[in-house]
Design a protein around this nucleic acid. Structure first.
Length: 451
RNA sequence: GGCAAGGUGGCAGAGUGGUUAUGCAGCGGCCUGCAAAGCCGUGGACGUCGGUUCGAUUCCGAUCCUUGCCUCCA
């Protein structure tokens, strides 16, 4: 299997060649745990989950996704609620994990906490100071970007470009205004740790560099995250890590997923249009959300709206519809086309079209044996995307409807139909449909599904 | 202002130098008491203007428009 991936750092699609031919290391920037995750937070995990599924077929994968439990937003949340910081971080870490699992995202192999790695971060800072890539001033330690010629290579920004339109707050204690903080002092109730530069806490970008090094080594195969992290977060990670490790690249392949818009407006805190995973799952099934993500290529923006949800539901209806009535279907090997589509820079839209092609073959199968075999291939292929994990019959049911009432009405209708009283039969159909359920008559009697 | 991505049929959304994307919706047919589902068939597209080419939606240039990043953000 040859995997091609679009590398943000070279802006081109490249053949994926891991450092170790048998093993792949992947680090994905995880959440800052201070509130409920919204659907934007889920797009990356879903995409990297699919990539992980693909990589695990060929390689031994070590997948690290961190938990940022060290951030001023967390302290603020704790203060607002009047609770311990650990209560906030523990609560929202659990909620994040629950929500991701609900979406069928498998846990990463390692999920490290920033607060468990302060020692590693302090060591890294000291190393940077020793190499003159960082300097201390008034209890702060800054990374000196003038000591790193390649600064800006990842996000493709020259120094002049960064100066024009810069929104960095001027600071008198920085040598260069674009220097970023590695360590800052903590005062009052703000948590902190003892360090050679006094009581304080690390800057935002440092944890990823320190934890990636600890668990995966100096150079990763794949580093992923949302496209909004490209600058400054990943650029700064690169600077720290490369200067700490004699210029060794932090990662060979940089993969960034696109953002989610909500009715054409970017979903963000400042817009106040966050759609929480929890709330959404009260209305629609987890696979619908997954399908909505996979409909668009991961690098493009997704415009989230009701039409996308109905569209995604209908797609799943078609897939599950083809294996309905076949009883329990056990997954088989995915098709070559499916694997090739994903190996081509995670082309999920193409992968979905393959799913529909298999579904058509299931529908056209001449024998029950043949349809069962094809159905197994379909489910196995869909599983690679994290879809079709449900029982087909269950998919078409809806827990919100009164099944007993539907069954009673259906029986009445069947009686009317056998009496050839079609007027009454249609009346009952209308009644059932007004409950949000549609009927399909088949050779084995009627079946129903939510509308 | 700088950097980056994109403009594909009614909608969503892949892809390709000349041949069907795919799903939904539409149209015609089969099946059905009717309908649905399914099956068969079918119409409809590549922002605009130039260039390269036997031939461009696909390559090159220009232009218009949209979006993201440059500030916390996935």
């Amino acid at each position: 299997m040859k995997i091609n991936l679009y590398n943000s750092s070279t802006k081109s699609k490249e053949l994926f060649v891991p450092i170790d031919p048998k093993k792949v290391t992947m680090y994905v920037c995880g959440p800052t745990v201070y509130s409920f995750p919204h659907i934007g937070n889920a797009r990356g995990p879903v995409i990297f989950d699919v990539l992980a599924n693909l990589l695990r077929r060929e390689y031994q994968l070590v997948y690290v996704r961190n938990i940022t439990d060290l951030d001023d937003k967390i302290y603020q949340a704790a203060e607002e609620e009047g609770v311990q910081i650990s209560e906030i971080t523990q609560r929202y870490t659990k909620i994040y994990q629950e929500d991701m699992n609900a979406l069928g995202v498998r846990d990463p192999d390692i999920e490290p906490l920033a607060t468990d790695h302060i020692t590693e971060m302090i060591k890294m800072i000291q190393g940077l100071i020793d190499k003159s890539h960082a300097y201390e001033n008034q209890g702060h330690v800054f990374f000196s970007i003038d000591t790193f010629d390649d600064y800006g290579f990842l996000s493709n920004r020259s120094e002049e470009e960064q100066i024009s339109g810069t929104r960095i707050k001027p600071s008198e204690i920085k040598k260069n205004q674009k220097d970023f903080v590695l360590w800052k002092p903590s005062t009052g109730d703000t948590p902190g740790w003892e360090s050679p530069w006094g009581f304080g806490r690390p800057g935002w970008h440092l944890e990823c560099s320190a934890m990636a090094k600890k668990y995966l080594g100096k150079t990763l195969d794949i580093h992923g995250g949302g496209s909004d992290l490209l600058f400054p977060h990943h650029e700064n990670e690169c600077a720290q890590s490369m200067c700490s490790h004699s210029g060794k690249p932090l990662a060979n392949y940089w993969i960034h997923n696109g953002m989610i818009d909500f009715d054409n407006v970017k979903m963000s805190k400042s817009e106040g249009n966050l759609l929480l995973i929890r709330d959404l799952l009260k209305q629609i099934g987890p696979e619908v959300i997954r399908m909505a993500f996979l409909t668009t290529h991961y690098r493009k923006p997704i415009n989230w709206n009701d039409a996308l949800i109905t569209d995604s539901e209908k797609k799943l209806d078609r897939l599950y519809g083809s294996i309905r009535k076949l009883g329990k279907v056990s997954p088989a090997e995915p098709t070559e086309e499916m694997i090739n589509a994903l190996a081509d820079d995670i082309n999920t839209p193409k992968a979905l079209s393959e799913l529909f092609a298999i579904a058509k073959r299931v529908n056209n199968a001449k024998s029950e044996n043949e349809s069962k075999q094809l159905a197994s291939t379909l489910v196995g292929s869909a599983n690679l995307l994290g879809l079709m994990n449900e029982d087909a019959e269950k998919w078409f049911e809806n827990i919100d409807v009164d099944e007993k009432l539907i069954d009673r009405l259906l029986n009445e209708r069947e009686a009317a139909r056998s009496d050839k009283d079609f007027e009454k039969a249609d009346q009952i159909r209308q009644e059932i449909e007004s409950l949000g359920v549609s009927i399909e008559d088949g050779p084995d009697g009627p079946i129903w599904k939510k509308q």
